[in-house]
């Protein structure tokens, strides 16, 4: 246990963080350079004002027509993404570990709230799974990798919840929790999870074309 723990909580964290950061930078720089080479017009039309207008519009719940058309999906998707980021970053236990390593600390969530937020993430993953299986238009688009990604996202939250509540096997769950967290970090730049990296650019470009060239709104 000690040996495994030391590896997963030491060198593997560094490895995952480095792959995540360098991988993300590589993807963004590579895409930027490819755009400059093959789609240089993208940069000519990018407008800061219209990019931000579009980005802000799409990160506000129910601000776009399609969000209003799918209220449940909107609520779930927003709750999911907020919790997905807030829980790992503002979890007391994580901050304790970071404080132990580097003596830095920041505001953290009360545990019961983090607990509920974790359940929200897990519940949302089940909801997304349900959509993939039950809605015809989503099932048609779904590939095997979509399930893997969904499982990958849910894993750190399921294991984290398990470990926190000390259900049978919580030691194993804790180790799996760390490993699955590392896996998802590594996955971000190289799977469809890269939508996290590209969202502002895609939205910004769409917003610029709609706003600056076409004088229309894109929501």
């Amino acid at each position: 246990m000690h040996a495994i723990y030391e590896i997963v909580s030491g060198p593997m964290v560094w490895l995952a963080a480095i792959i995540f950061i360098l991988g993300s930078l590589y993807r963004l720089i590579f895409m930027g350079r490819l755009a400059a080479k093959k789609d240089p017009m993208v940069f000519s039309y990018l407008s800061v004002y219209y990019s931000l207008r579009s980005i802000f519009h799409w990160i506000i719940p129910f601000a776009s027509v399609n969000m209003r058309k799918h209220p449940i999906m909107t609520v779930v998707a927003f709750a999911f993404h907020i919790c997905l980021f807030a829980v790992p970053i503002f979890l007391c236990a994580h901050i304790i570990l970071i404080n132990e390593a580097w003596q830095v600390k920041w505001w953290y969530l009360p545990n019961p709230i983090a607990d509920v937020m974790t359940l929200i993430v897990i519940g949302a993953c089940i909801f997304f799974l349900g959509r993939r299986l039950l809605l015809r238009e989503v099932r048609y688009l779904t590939t095997f990798s979509d399930f893997l990604i969904l499982a990958g996202v849910a894993a750190p939250f399921v294991t984290g919840f398990w470990s926190y509540h000390q259900y049978p096997g919580h030691e194993t769950a804790a180790i799996l929790h760390i490993i699955s967290g590392e896996i998802i970090l590594v996955m971000i730049p190289f799977t469809r999870l890269s939508h996290m990296l590209f969202f502002p650019f895609l939205r910004g470009y769409a917003g610029s074309e709609f706003g600056a060239v076409r004088n229309a709104v894109d929501w």
């Binding site: 897990i122 519940g123 089940i126 919840f161 398990w162 049978p168 096997g169 194993t172």
Partner: peptide, 28 residues
């Protein structure tokens, strides 16, 4: 902790589905 326990629990971990977790959590 004891190693025996760990072995048993790993099996549990594989068996319990995520939904079970949620229900368990609320009842603990």
């Amino acid at each position: 902790y004891s190693e025996k326990e760990t072995g048993v629990e790993t099996k549990h971990l594989l068996m319990l589905p995520a939904i079970g977790l949620v229900i368990l959590a609320l009842s603990v």
